[in-house]
Amino acid sequence: MKTHQPLKSCLVRRLAAASLLAGLATGAMAQATAPSTPVATPPTTTHAVTAHAAQVPQLTIRDVYDRMEAAGYRDLREIEWSDGRYEVKARNAQGARVKLEVDGNTGAVLRSRIKH
């Protein structure tokens, strides 16, 4: 009787990778040959579009960082998007820790609070 030797782990990994790639290729081919159907979009009103546009920032976090640094703020630690504006934790020109509220569209500092 002939006994089978266990497969080596590298061979098992190669077979697993090959079957994964084959599955991905099959899925990609099926997706490419599927007929495209238009997706229905719900009707939008001017108010809904305006409200959504107000919530999407025009400035990126990098833009805000650069503007705050150019304005003299240093040690910028956190920049987070919240309710149409960025919240920034930094140090002002005097070295005091501050929390800033920055307009997400213009980059203007709306509020500056010194943190104790």
Rank of each mutant, 00 (worst) to 15 (best):
53 A>F: 03
53 A>H: 11
53 A>V: 07
54 A>N: 11
54 A>L: 13
55 Q>F: 00
55 Q>L: 14
56 V>G: 04
57 P>F: 07
57 P>I: 04
57 P>E: 01
58 Q>K: 15
58 Q>S: 13
58 Q>D: 12
59 L>D: 08
59 L>K: 10
60 T>W: 10
60 T>H: 00
60 T>K: 12
61 I>R: 15
61 I>P: 03
62 R>S: 13
64 V>G: 03
64 V>E: 02
64 V>F: 07
64 V>S: 07
65 Y>W: 06
65 Y>L: 14
65 Y>T: 12
65 Y>D: 13
66 D>W: 02
67 R>P: 01
67 R>M: 14
67 R>K: 15
67 R>C: 05
67 R>S: 11
67 R>A: 09
68 M>F: 01
68 M>W: 04
68 M>D: 07
70 A>Y: 02
71 A>P: 05
71 A>N: 12
72 G>I: 08
72 G>Y: 11
72 G>C: 11
73 Y>H: 13
73 Y>I: 08
75 D>V: 02
76 L>T: 10
76 L>S: 11
77 R>N: 14
77 R>I: 07
78 E>G: 06
78 E>K: 14
79 I>S: 00
79 I>P: 00
79 I>D: 10
80 E>L: 10
80 E>D: 15
81 W>E: 03
81 W>G: 01
82 S>F: 11
82 S>M: 07
83 D>E: 15
83 D>G: 04
84 G>V: 03
84 G>M: 07
84 G>H: 05
85 R>I: 02
85 R>W: 00
85 R>P: 01
85 R>C: 04
86 Y>E: 07
86 Y>D: 03
87 E>L: 11
88 V>G: 10
88 V>I: 15
89 K>G: 00
90 A>V: 12
90 A>C: 13
91 R>Y: 03
92 N>I: 04
93 A>D: 14
93 A>G: 09
94 Q>M: 11
94 Q>N: 12
95 G>D: 11
95 G>H: 12
95 G>F: 11
96 A>I: 00
97 R>V: 04
98 V>H: 04
99 K>P: 01
99 K>Q: 14
99 K>T: 09
99 K>C: 00
100 L>A: 11
101 E>K: 15
102 V>P: 01
102 V>K: 02
103 D>I: 05
103 D>Q: 06
103 D>K: 08
104 G>F: 06
105 N>W: 10
105 N>E: 09
107 G>N: 06
108 A>P: 05
109 V>I: 15
109 V>G: 04
110 L>G: 02
110 L>A: 02
